[in-house]
Structures are given as C-alpha cells and as structure tokens.
Design a protein around this nucleic acid. Sequence first.
RNA 1: GCCGGUGUGGUGGAAUUGGCAGACACAGCAGACUCAAAAUCUGCCGCCGUCAAAAGCGUGCCGGUUCAAGUCCGGCCACCGGCACCA
Length: 824
Amino acid sequence: MDKYIPQEIEKKWQKQWEEQDVYHTEADPSRPKYYALEMFPYPSGNLHMGHVRNYSIGDVVARFHAMSGYNVLHPMGFDSFGMPAENAAIKHGVKPSDWTYSNIENMIRQQKEMGLSYDWDRKVLTCREDYYRWTQWLFELFYKRGLAYKKKATVNWCDTCGTVLANEQVIDGKCWRCDSKVEKKALSQWFLKITDYADELLADLDKLEGWPERVKTMQRNWIGRSEGLEFELPIEGMDEKISVYTTRPDTAYGITFVALAAEHEIIDKLCENNPRAEAIHAFIKKVQDQSDVERTSEASEKEGIFTGVYAINPFNGNKVQLWVTNYVLADYGTGAVMGVPSGDTRDWMFAKKYDLPIILTLQPKDKELKLEEMDTAYVEHEGRLVNSEQFTGMDMHEALHAIIDYAEEKGFGKRKVNYRLRDWLISRQRYWGAPIPVINCPHCGEVLVPEEDLPVKLPEDVSFEQGVVSPLANSESFVHCKCPKCGADATRETDTMDTFICSSWYFLRYTDPHNTELPFAKDKVNYWAPVDQYIGGIEHAILHLLYSRFFTKVLRDAGLLDFDEPFTRLLTQGMVIKDGSKMSKSKGNVVSPEEIIGKYGADTARLFILFAAPVDRDLEWSDQGVEGAYRFLGRVWRIMLHFADAIKAGQDDYDVKALDKEEKELRRQLHIAIKKVTNDVKDRFMFNTAISTLMELVNDLYKFQNRELNAGLAHETASALLRLMAPFTPHITEELWHRLGFAGSVHQQSWPTYDEDATKASTIEVVLQINGKVRDKVTIDAGLSREAMQDVVMQLPRAKELTEGKTIVKVICVPKKLVNIVVK
RNA sequence: GCCGGUGUGGUGGAAUUGGCAGACACAGCAGACUCAAAAUCUGCCGCCGUCAAAAGCGUGCCGGUUCAAGUCCGGCCACCGGCACCA
C-alpha cells in the first residue's frame, strides 16, 4: 500500500490549485457573501508560529463557509511600510523597498506552502504606489472634513526610532516597537480628530456582540468617558475665573482649595505683581524637569505651592486657596481641579501635607464619620449630604444631579462629558511611509496636493544613516515644489503617516483592489464588507482595532460606504508558547514553521495547532503533540485506503436497513460527528473539539479493520469524513478524495449534512442514583416512557439492595438520563 | 484601586441548557506482530483502597441553593491582561 508522503501530495495540489485559480472570487449579489479575514502581517521576512496559527484558523473559517454555500472573500496582503525596512537600510545599506519586497516574496512562498485558500489576485501591499495613493487621498478626505489638523503640542518622542508616537503607541512610558523610554517634545504635528467620534466609538461597542468582552473593555477603558460638571470659580481681586471639572459635584460644598496643573496658562497672570512669583516658577521648573513616567508614578509624592491668591467657591462663597501642583494633568478636563479633601484620596493627602482645611459633606448611612477620627477620605458613592446648605440631607445620587442643575441655573457651570481618549498623532519623521500630501506655501499656507497629483511619491535620492531624523527633509527633489494654488516656490511636508493609517482601511481595499478611480467602489465594499470574521492577536485590541473603527465611521459619514462597524465578529487568538514563554529569538525557543512543514507537511502543522488548544487560549508547543497529529493523519490515510474497494463500490444511495448492528452504530456515530463538527466550527469556533470528534470517528472506523464493511456505508463515511476534514487538512483530503474515486475537488463539495433520526440510538444507558450518587447503570429501550423507565430502574437489584429498610422520600426521573432515588 | 479573563489528572484539554467529571490527545505501562528494533494494531491509565470489587475522596479555597453543582448564588485566594494622579 502507498505510504502517506505529505511532501509529495502537498506540492502537487498546491500547484494544481494555483494553476486552476480555484480560490478566485468575484462579487455576486445573487449569492450570500462571507468575508473571512486574518490580520495582514508585517513583512519581517519569515512566518512564525503565530502567523501559522492565525492563518490556519482563518483558512478553516473560509473553507467551511465556502463549502456551506457562501461566496467567500479570503484575501491576504502586507502591512509593508514601517521602521524595520528603514533600519535594514541603515544597517545593511539595502533600499527599504528592496528589503521589503524580497521579504514579501519569501513570506508569500511560505504562506503558499501552508495551502491557504487566498485569492492572491486581491493581494494588497500598503507600500505600493497604487495603495498609498489612496491612503493619501483618504488623508485629504479627512482634512476636508475638518478631521485632520496640525498643531503644536507636547508629543511623545522616541529617540531610538527618531520619530513621534501616538498615545496608543506608548506602553508604560515606553515605545511599543523598540521598548525604549519615551520623552516629551514640543512639536508641530498632524493629528486626526478621533475624539469627535469618541461617543460613537464607545456606544457602538455595545453592538459588537461577536467581540470578546475583554477587547471591548480595553477600548472602553481607553476611551474613558466620564460625566460631570464643569464650573467656574471667580478669582478674588482679579477679573479672572478658573474653570474646574468634576465627576463629584455632590461634594462641591467641601472645596477647600483649587489645584492647578503646572502648565496651566492662568499661572502667568497669577504671578503678576506676586511676591511669590519666583518661588512658583522654581516649583514649575522642578516639576517639568521630571519625566512623564516619574511624574505620573504612584510613588511620586503630591507636591504643590500656594500662589497666595484665593478663588471663591460659587456654591457657598467660601474663600479657597489656589495651588500649583505636580499631580494635576494639564491636558485632561480643564487642567484645574477642585480640592475636596474629605471626598478624594489625593486631595486628602495633599490637604494633610500642607495643613489645608477639610470640610465633611457626606455621611454614610450605616455609620457616622467624624473628621478627627478619619485617616483617609470617604470616597464611597453612598450617603447623605451634610454642610451643603439647601442640599443638606439629600441622597448623594440625587444631590449630584440637583447640584449640576443648580450650577446651570445660576449660570456658573454646565454638564460636561470628558474623555481620556486624545486625538491621534499621525506624523512620523521617517522615510518608509506614505508622505503626508500637503504643501506649505509662503503665501497660501498649508495646501493639499491636488487629487490628480497623487500619489506624492517617495523619492529615491535619500541616504540612510544612523540617527538621521526625517530623511525626506534631506531630499532636495522631494522638498522643493510649487504651490498648487499660486505657483510660488513652496516646500512639502516631510513627515510620513503613521503606518496604522495604512492598516486602518486595507480590509476595504481587498473588496476592490485594482480600482484606479477610487479607494474602492461603493457597491463592492457594501457587498463584501463588513468583515464577517476577523482573526488576529490581542495586541491590536486598542491600536489597530480602534483606528479601523474610527476610519469606517468617517468613511460612512463621507458616503463611501453604508455600515457602521468594520468587523462584525472578532476572534483574538492566543499566543504560541514554548517552555512557558512566548516564542522569541532572544529566548531561543523558536520553532520554525518551515522546518515543521518540511518534516511533517502543512496538514500536520495545521492540524496540531488547531487541535492543541482552543483558538483564543495560549498554545503550548509540543513536538510530541505534532507527532500525534501526524500519526492521526497516517491513520486516516491507511484506513481510507484499506476500505478503498468498498468505498469505490458504494453509492450515495444505499439500503440502510441492510446494515448489521455494528454498522448501524457506525452510521449513527458518523451522523453524530457531522452534527458536532458542524456545530463546533460554525457557531463555537471550537476547532479542538471538532478535531477530537473526527478522531473518535476514525477510531470507530478502525473497529471494522478486521471485518467486512458495507460498501454503501463505507462510501458514505469516507465521503463525509473527508469533507469534514477538508478545511483543517486540505491536501491529504484532496488526495484521498481523488484516490477513492470521488468526483471533482473535495474543496468544491458541499458541507455534509446529517440526518437527525440517524443520530438516535435504539437503546440508551440510564443511570441509577441514590441520593445523587451514581450506583448503577442499565441499558434500556430508547422508546420506553418515563414511567416504564423509572420502573425498570427501580427494579434493579442494586436499587432494591440500597433502599432496603430505608424510607424513599422522593424519586426524580429525568427521561433518557437518570433516576435518582432519595432515601432516608 | 477599578475593569475583564482564567483556575479541572503526570501534561494539553473535554463536559454546549444544573443531570454519569476527566471525551480526544500527549506521556507512561502492558500485549500482538517481528530473529530483533522501528513502524503499526489492541488494551490499561484521577487519588485512595482492593487478589478483584465495594466503599471513600476529587474540578483554586470557604459557605449556600438543589434530589443533583466544574456549571447557579454569596464571600475569598492565586495567576494573566487592560486602565490608572483622568479629578
């Protein structure tokens, strides 16, 4: 008998599928569509196991839906702008484009070796002119809609990367890519106004039922919406007011000071003719010399300096001190905070340190607080107000709203919603990215490059050297240009866009990848998108997934598409772990996909990775586990060929009544397996249990290896088994499909269906329980009534023995499952 | 601190609606085949106990609801992830 040699059959079928273009897709409004998408990779040069896992999952989803009758879009591309290409240029003197394209070529070869069902004709590379032209076009669309603007701001600077970073790209004060410490710099940079969409980005998370809870939670945290009151305190002796924001207006009668951020603009005015001015400026300098990390760390002490100036609490007319502090954030709320020591832990500590007064305004129900006995603030959201004039005695929640109403009525405050989310900084001082299509004219100011002049191409006369910031600024041919409006000599923007812009719309481009008139045609995008199932790593929970949602909403408002959310369902796969930690070169625990595929074949690699753990959990790599997957495929191979004659002789239509008892049971297991695998793949994404079901079915088939098997049943079983396995292991199933005489490609067959009646057994096993403990089992006729079943079980010797001399309190009978006798 | 997730044999994991805990696989042990080995096929495999059985124990911990709890409720613990001086 032929041996299973994956290397031969995989090559053969990959070639044939490619030649016959079997994965080509066209939009077809008469058919239901399914868009399955894996996050496109950065072209680092080689696939790693995380990729293999990602694509294996996606391929099962895509192939399953294709077999289930959907018109499936399953594309692949490369997120091919970015720093590593530039680093390669600096280190090895290769052009970023050459480095990138050769990496892409190698990775596509590896992806093809996996046997993935991509429509390669739709390949999207973000670094190609035919793509970044539309990235620039979209930037201009944002600009025209008032959503792209340039401003001078304190931004995050990574010196190692020689560029700025978005807030989302700063993780624990460090650069998301190179892990080096992020500094603050004041620069004029481009931003996208994602905050305009904060409310919708938050609210629509509730619509995303197919998203993991933790991803939605992360986005909620990141957006950080809060509701409260913004109100003004007049400054004593000056014609100025200071605005503060609070989520606890119910504590407003307890204000004893106001804390200002060191950067607050009113400080200059407060310092005029102020004997303390010098000390105040010295304090501010000290604060600003601290890094962001130091400043915001839990450990750093809250410090401040009294300005000598007082503000008036508009609620009760109290005089309160104005302090400059190191703990109030300049860019959140108003940059000034009301200080209520009795109701806020930080304010309490601050007041204790500088001996500021404390007023209690809230009493809990179950105990009575006394200021002199308290050693921290009372921060619970529960209780009744005290010392709060007309609001005294009111419940805290009621008072919160009543006090806002009062402030609005009196005209010194208003309801306000604040967000933690900041606008998206998109300028990057790097070469290998999409140039920002703006020209700076000495007369006209900032001017968009006319649409017909797009793309603004990356120049070739660029030298890459260590430490050079903004390579484009050093390119003569790039910088100098004419103003499109007035024709005067002008200069170009020399920053490129954050690569997260490129990846915020690539999934839309797949729907119409060759369009030269628009980024995508509306009918095509509306047919294919939104993505039905998106699959990728949790590391993109905020960055890419939030940005893509933002883009989708803006493009909807611009009329380019008709849906609100880009990804209907999201699956965040777990990491691939070896010896307890993520595979990485530095840890030396990397297993190369190429090696595994070379040794065992792609089918084994895919099967193992899908079987070893549920898709959303981390997966511990096991060489022995891979062996096990390979063994299973060998078992399938042998048992299928063992029954080859019967399978070929059998027909789709055969006399099921002619089957003997064992054969009937095999057929029953087959139909149970079809039901279970379908359910696991379609609704639950439980590929590990789907595969275990297939293994059980194969085990059942082995019970027949030393006896005859009905040809009709052999045929039915092989046909269904190969189709059930096809999405997981596309090559071996295709090979066996042909060898066993089935027509066409297994991948173009319809998904097997099951006969509910065929899954039913004629006899069932029921359990005898005494006081909830299993004491015996008995096989009964499946057709027995509840009463008859109970009688049979009650008559069991074990039942009699164990109830003898005891009182039967109760008998619970669960049809077809168990009888529980409760005795005393 | 707030939010989310996870916790089951030697190991990865299963148990979908409260109804036989441990499917499937890895590792291990044994048998068949073989001169032998590999490969393959078959069987055993939670702990304790027993010649074998029975009984008992067992899903992070404590308690509760229920005839019945891995699953529901209350209270903890540990680990992982996110947010955090956001007023």
